[in-house]
Amino acid sequence: MATLPDLKGSSFTLTVLHLASNDVAEAKSFLTEKVEKAPAFFANAPIVLNIEKVDGDIDFAALKQAVNDAGMIPVGITGSKNKRTQTLATDAGFAVMTASKTPTQAPAEMKAPKVVRTPVRSGQQVYAKDSDLIVLSHVSAGAEVIADGSIHIYGSLRGRAIAGASGQSESKILCHDLQAELVSISGHYWLSDQINSEYWKKKVMLSMADEQLQFEILAQ
């Protein structure tokens, strides 16, 4: 018997761009810069546009093209309670989305941590599904380590570390030498140029508090 298609609810971590104005060129420039700094993380990434703080009309067709030109995939808008604005957005091909207020919970059963004993080289990606990730060596520039849980790196972090990949905001990133290209927990990320110099090349722990990434220097 043939298997029929089915519709089921699910959850995904999406990048959300919070627009401050209806200046499409400004948004495109910002996105292009981010993609150039971390192409492996942002290229072809789905993005939602939060327009809650935007005053005035938005050229949604131009905005959609700007997102495409920057190398990302426009999915929808959020933050609008104006029916006219929502109609203009849908006419341009955007979905109208409502942010959930329910926090994402960790999986009911987390697996044993995934342990990597060798360096993670440039171009490599390591993913620990439904578990923590422990790297006993270095993560090189251009490498990417991902975990649905927390990430522990007992060496230098020069590449990208993405914890809480399925939305677990309680996840953490710990490393002995922070020189990261990008760090992310539950979809919230900082690039290297956003990391305060006081944490650079230090033993640190990253966590989430009040929807913000928090850095803590650990004792050597």
Results as ranks from 00 to 15, higher is better:
183 V>S: 07
184 S>A: 11
181 E>G: 04
165 A>F: 15
200 W>A: 05
201 K>R: 04
188 H>D: 04
204 V>A: 03
201 K>E: 12
173 I>R: 06
178 L>E: 03
170 E>Q: 15
156 S>M: 09
192 S>Y: 03
186 S>C: 09
157 L>E: 11
174 L>C: 05
166 S>L: 11
164 G>Q: 05
182 L>C: 05
144 E>F: 08
205 M>Y: 02
137 S>R: 09
141 A>F: 14
208 M>I: 13
159 G>L: 07
206 L>H: 11
172 K>N: 11
170 E>C: 09
170 E>L: 12
184 S>L: 01
148 D>F: 09
196 N>H: 03
158 R>Q: 13
191 L>V: 00
175 C>L: 08
190 W>A: 04
145 V>H: 13
185 I>T: 03
163 A>G: 08
164 G>I: 07
143 A>Q: 04
180 A>L: 04
166 S>T: 14
143 A>K: 07
149 G>E: 09
205 M>P: 00
199 Y>I: 00
203 K>P: 07
144 E>Q: 13
195 I>S: 02
210 D>G: 12
138 H>Y: 08
152 H>P: 04
178 L>V: 02
140 S>A: 13
148 D>A: 10
187 G>T: 01
139 V>Y: 08
179 Q>F: 10
163 A>L: 11
151 I>H: 10
204 V>R: 03
147 A>D: 07
162 I>H: 14
154 Y>V: 03
210 D>F: 07
180 A>C: 04
144 E>M: 14
208 M>V: 10
203 K>C: 04
147 A>W: 10
190 W>N: 01
189 Y>S: 07
168 Q>P: 01
147 A>M: 09
181 E>M: 01
141 A>D: 12
192 S>T: 00
208 M>D: 13
201 K>H: 06
195 I>M: 06
138 H>R: 10
141 A>Y: 10
142 G>I: 11
202 K>M: 10
199 Y>T: 00
145 V>I: 15
168 Q>W: 15
175 C>P: 07
207 S>N: 15
210 D>C: 01
198 E>Y: 00
177 D>G: 05
200 W>T: 05
170 E>W: 12
140 S>N: 12
210 D>Q: 15
194 Q>N: 08
198 E>K: 01
199 Y>H: 02
195 I>L: 02
178 L>F: 07
168 Q>L: 08
197 S>G: 01
205 M>G: 04
184 S>R: 02
140 S>K: 13
158 R>H: 07
170 E>A: 15
183 V>F: 03
158 R>W: 04
199 Y>D: 00
170 E>V: 14
205 M>I: 02
197 S>E: 09
176 H>Q: 14
167 G>H: 09
185 I>G: 07
196 N>F: 00
181 E>Y: 00
203 K>E: 10
140 S>Y: 11
141 A>Q: 14
168 Q>H: 14
147 A>E: 06
195 I>E: 03
157 L>M: 07
178 L>I: 05
150 S>N: 14
183 V>M: 05
147 A>N: 11
188 H>T: 01
159 G>W: 08
137 S>F: 10
189 Y>L: 00
176 H>I: 01
208 M>N: 06
207 S>T: 15
171 S>H: 14
149 G>S: 08
170 E>R: 13
144 E>C: 09
194 Q>L: 03
149 G>L: 02
156 S>V: 10
174 L>R: 12
139 V>I: 14
158 R>A: 14
193 D>N: 13
180 A>W: 06
